[in-house]
Nucleic acid binder design. Structure first.
Lengths: 140, 140
DNA sequence: TCTTGCACCTCTAGTCGCTAGAGGATGTAG
DNA sequence: CTACATCCTCTAGCGACTAGAGGTGCAAGA
């Protein structure tokens, strides 16, 4: 068993050093052994954990959701209904976010296209912002 | 000139009372007159400002970008190149965000569809999170 | 062996854009 | 005159980190 330093763990997992310490401080990652000089010394299991966390964060899961997913992973005989529910909830969030961003994109495109690159008083960008009535999506 | 209280301003602008005070504190909204009893008393100009800010926030512009846009609006003879640049930058951000969310959506759909609703050890949700190699988009 | 220099340690405070709550003053309707 | 809503200021909290200060550990070269 070669010891894995926090820097090495960061390199292998793609999670930054301070973030690893932060995850430990909030109880998301188990405290590793320490070297004689008080430096953290990780096992492979920690690296798996970090990879899991990182992937989940990239998918936009919140820390609390990840906490739940991790406890589920630790008890493989449990029903995966909760995991399923968490993922479904996240999926709905993502779909909603995409819809709203798509509307914003359309509005921004109008603004940018309408900009005559002249003076501010003829600028669609400023104008649309100032007068929401001109906006394509007054419901927002 | 009837006086507009902060509550009334909040109702008309759709910006919450504490948020209005917050905008004032960071210098985004000019300090209004005060009543004898030290209560804020707004003018129409403040309401226009608030509407502008709110719309810009809904479009996802950052406070600093809004600060710039507001100073541009105050000087209508200036070139609107900066406004154009800010809006374009925001558009690019939004497009990027939509692309990445669309990828996440696909991955989440795979996870949810693959979940057999049984035990955790057969669950795609947990499995995909744990093993990034199974992920559709290993580049993220 | 000494020293250089990077990586590590803890701790606090800052980021963004609000939001919540305490504790008190003001304004208005009945 | 008394409720009661609304207002005031101030501080602290949110999530998920990130930055920096001030100090220690450790491996490699001279």
């Amino acid at each position: 068993m070669k010891k894995i330093t926090i820097g090495e763990a960061a390199r292998q997992s793609g999670v930054k050093v301070p973030t690893i310490r932060y995850y430990e401080s909030i109880g998301l990652l188990a405290e590793p052994e320490r070297s004689e000089g008080n430096q953290r010394s990780y096992e492979q299991s920690h690296l798996h954990r970090l990879a899991f966390i990182r992937h989940a964060r990239e998918l936009g899961f919140e820390i609390d959701a990840i906490r739940t997913l991790l406890t589920l992973q630790d008890d493989p005989h449990q029903s995966c209904a909760s995991a399923d529910a968490i993922a479904k909830a996240r999926l709905i969030e993502v779909e909603q976010r995409i819809r709203s961003l798509t509307a914003l994109k359309a509005e921004l495109e109008m603004m940018v296209k309408g900009c005559g690159h002249g003076r501010v008083d003829q600028c669609r960008v400023i104008e649309v912002l100032a007068d929401h009535g001109e906006c394509m999506h007054p419901q927002h």
